[in-house]
Simulated scan of single mutants.
Amino acid sequence: MSLNRFASLRWQAIARRHPSAFLLAVQLLSLVLYPLFDQVGGGRVVFGAFGVLALALAVWVVNRSPASTWIAWSLAVPAFVLSLLAVLVRSEALLVASSALEALLYFYAAGSLIAYMMSDHQVTADELYAAGATFTLLAWGFAYAFFVCQAWYPGSFAGAVEPARPRVWLELLFLSFTNLSAVGLGDVVPLGAAARVLVMLEQFAGVGYVAVVVSRLIGLTIVRAQER
């Protein structure tokens, strides 16, 4: 067996065992690369490509969890098609529609990963990766929800820089991460009623995630270490 063939099989085995790690890696890599392409004309297309890969990985992760895969595909396929059409025809309405479907997909994948982590009483390495992937899925899902809210209700968000203009994607994602992690840092604030409700729901989700899922994983890890 050649070295290339062996390496390919090895990566396939790792991918089957730890799909959540790949999803987490793609999400974090897109964050690192986005500022490099933010100011160029194709930046949004490049970020969209990472989004499509993340969507595929989200469906892959859902397939590992006790959830119906067809629901994930019914959200991922139209979201992918609409996002491509939005780029090709430069349609804001299609972009909003694809963002709404992506938000639903990310929430669905996050819920499925939570069910996967809560389904047994032993902590595996993939479940630890899933804990990080679930956090990013929730952050992305609420960011897309903020984007849709801003499109439906103009003026929903304001910022320290040019407060009257609509917030760009990275600003909304930054707001989502600060809310979900409860760090309280940020220069974007919700003004409209719908925006404030979304922010409060995300804050509740962030606190609940740490209190229920993360604390359970930590407790099971400690118990496992003590049994050894």
Rank of each mutant, 00 (worst) to 15 (best):
P35V: 10
T136G: 02
T134E: 03
A115I: 01
A143T: 08
V87K: 01
L75M: 09
A67G: 15
L138M: 14
V40K: 02
L82C: 10
A110L: 04
E127I: 02
L24G: 08
D120P: 07
G51H: 10
P66Y: 09
V89G: 01
V61S: 13
R44S: 13
S83R: 10
V45K: 03
A67F: 09
A21V: 11
V32A: 15
R64Q: 09
P78L: 10
R44T: 08
V46Q: 00
A21F: 14
L36N: 07
R90W: 08
L36V: 13
A93D: 11
S74R: 04
H121G: 08
F107D: 02
L88W: 15
A15L: 12
F135K: 00
A97C: 04
F37Q: 00
F147D: 02
F80V: 12
V52P: 00
W60L: 10
A145S: 15
V52A: 14
F142R: 08
A130V: 06
Y106V: 00
A110E: 04
R16P: 02
A115Q: 12
L137V: 05
A97Y: 03
V123A: 05
W70V: 13
L53N: 06
A110D: 03
V62F: 06
V62L: 05
S74Y: 01
L95Y: 09
L75Q: 05
L138W: 03
R90N: 14
F135A: 07
W140S: 07
G141M: 08
A86C: 12
V26A: 15
G111E: 06
G132H: 07
F50W: 12
M118D: 11
G132W: 02
P78T: 09
A72N: 05
A54L: 12
G48Q: 11
G51L: 11
Y144V: 01
S99Y: 02
P19N: 10
F135Q: 01
V81I: 15
S83W: 04
Y144R: 15
S98V: 04
G111W: 07
A143M: 09
L55W: 05
L104T: 03
S112Y: 05
S68M: 08
F37C: 06
A15G: 12
V59S: 12
A49P: 00
V32K: 05
A145K: 04
W60P: 00
R17I: 03
R44V: 10
L105K: 05
Q122Y: 10
T69K: 11
A76T: 03
G141F: 03
V46F: 12
S98E: 05
W70Y: 12
A109L: 01
A54T: 09
G42Y: 10
A79Y: 04
G41A: 14
V81Q: 05
Y129D: 07
S30H: 03
W70Q: 12
L128T: 06
Q39E: 12
A125N: 07
V52F: 13
A93C: 00
W60Y: 14
T136Y: 09
F22S: 13
E92W: 02
V61Y: 13
F50C: 12
I114F: 00
F47Y: 15
G111L: 08
S20K: 00
V32I: 15
L137P: 01
V96F: 00
F147I: 01
V89W: 13
H121V: 10
S112N: 06
L138H: 01
W60F: 12
A79M: 08
